[in-house]
Design a binder for these strands. Sequence first.
DNA 1: CTGAAAGCGCTTACAG
DNA 2: CTGAAAGCGCTTACAG
Lengths: 329, 329
Amino acid sequence: MERSDSARPTGLEVARLAGVAQSSVSLVFSGKAQGRISPALERRIRDAATQLGYEPIHVGRALRSGEVGALGLVVTDFENAFFGPVSRGAQEAAAEAGLAVVLMEDRASDPVRSLDRGLVDGLLVFAVDPPEPTDRLAARVTLLEVVHPAYSGVVFDSADGMRQAVRHLNGLGHGTIGYAGVDTGRWTFRERRASWERAMADAGLPVDGRVAESAITLEAATAAARGLLAGASRPTAVVCADDLVTAGVYRAAAELGLRVPDDLSVVGFGGTIVGEVLSPAVTTLYASGRALGRVAVELALGRPSAPERRVVPVELRPGASTAVPGVPA
Amino acid sequence: MERSDSARPTGLEVARLAGVAQSSVSLVFSGKAQGRISPALERRIRDAATQLGYEPIHVGRALRSGEVGALGLVVTDFENAFFGPVSRGAQEAAAEAGLAVVLMEDRASDPVRSLDRGLVDGLLVFAVDPPEPTDRLAARVTLLEVVHPAYSGVVFDSADGMRQAVRHLNGLGHGTIGYAGVDTGRWTFRERRASWERAMADAGLPVDGRVAESAITLEAATAAARGLLAGASRPTAVVCADDLVTAGVYRAAAELGLRVPDDLSVVGFGGTIVGEVLSPAVTTLYASGRALGRVAVELALGRPSAPERRVVPVELRPGASTAVPGVPA
DNA sequence: CTGAAAGCGCTTACAG
DNA sequence: CTGAAAGCGCTTACAG
């Protein structure tokens, strides 16, 4: 991978061709020519650059400025469907500020080391346990769907979302509402479960252990949902913490001969393509990953002196997976 | 985003603390100390570095070496489920070589410009039309699921995949087999369609316009599949070019009251989570995005003098979506 | 308005 | 086995 392509011209070569100083070339290309380089000279410089195919390389600037112009987005798992929208939102917002986003898988890379090596200027940490805080890190790490007192961060309003879900189901007449969640121990899913429990309590509904939690794979979610739905005292409705979990609930219901929504109402949480392809269309707490990613970048760019918190709202989108509970068999 | 953290020590500071030359520090950290720095000195240098929390920053090296140690993975759309596995495969292989992978969305960035600016050392172009070839680009661009004579690249063996699909369906007794594809005009999907047509011809089966193509969204795929399945001469089996398209076929079938596989057999292509959550489990031509990403990185690192081609096999994985055709109503 | 010079933090011949 | 020096391609005071 040698860069020694004879094809790559430097600012000095452009300067020579244009008959000016190298610094004048730099001024033009860093957008600081205004009032410092005459229009005629700028023209000449740009023409020379075009002729040579010059493009200032980034590392020269980076070394001088101490910034590489990139943020690292740390995720647990590239294959999680939620990562697509989050990544897109982050990239959009970063691109507007002239920054790139580098994706890092938590287990495969050492994000803090990447930061220390100056591979990125900051870290966006999505649903991953944050690193031990230091002053340096506190100014450079932004959390998504995690809360830690030392860091800025953005989270979904899952408390409000779960209230909407429980109110919706309760309004339809459901009294026994179960919960299908994720047991990885990460903040996101602890928060969603706690929010559901509070929403149930606020509605005066019993929880009674109607909770299934599992790893975040289709197989595990299906197995857990089977347990939740197989018992005699099965819930008539289930709130799910994630689209993949919803898929597991659908699958377990189908295996058990339960029809959605006739025999079982289901409310999802997420809004990724995984949830969208389910049939019947799932009534879901839509959480915009794109918004989450965008807000995180805004926080990272803002660099407040004290940690700052943002909340992205969650919205109940009616589908065909919830209905008035059927008469028990 | 000033890097002027007083916290970030330089190699010179480490050298001073250890009482050696800065170049000795460099030698130790670039792994070239062997036979050049005595073990005792190396110890002293490493101790000093640990004490200061020194980590060589990357841009210094990058400027000197002309390489940034990163490959850009260019995709059409971050939200395509296929991108997860491809990205993971690429990152794994790149990490083994000490390289990072930067993700770029084709429409949002200008990948060639990123290459020219030295933001990345090479481009992995996934299912996106390749840039106009130049000598410089030919050595630095690797194509995934696209073929162009000027570039190295890796593709799925869709010809073999489609043969397997048609043989499987024909073996079950299906004579009228339709095709649900994607009409974006990109190489990937032109190739899959052509492969299906050849496989049909080889099996002596008529095509007769039983083809539906659409944009790669659930809505569009559903609408196109509706057209394919609504007619009187509807196929008894459909081969799909993508998991999202398969989801559309399932949805259209459900709308039309066709049961899978009793009334309609379906073979998918892909193997992403989007396909996995469908019910019944889809018989699919499994194509490993992870392998595709990995092979692409290997090609990129190999830097052959002439463009090199690789093929990743596709494998028919039986599910519950294909069966002997039912008696026509 | 323009140019010569120093320096960002590394690596790499080169001299001892 | 170790160190002093040059240089990668930029940016930024500084002097004219």
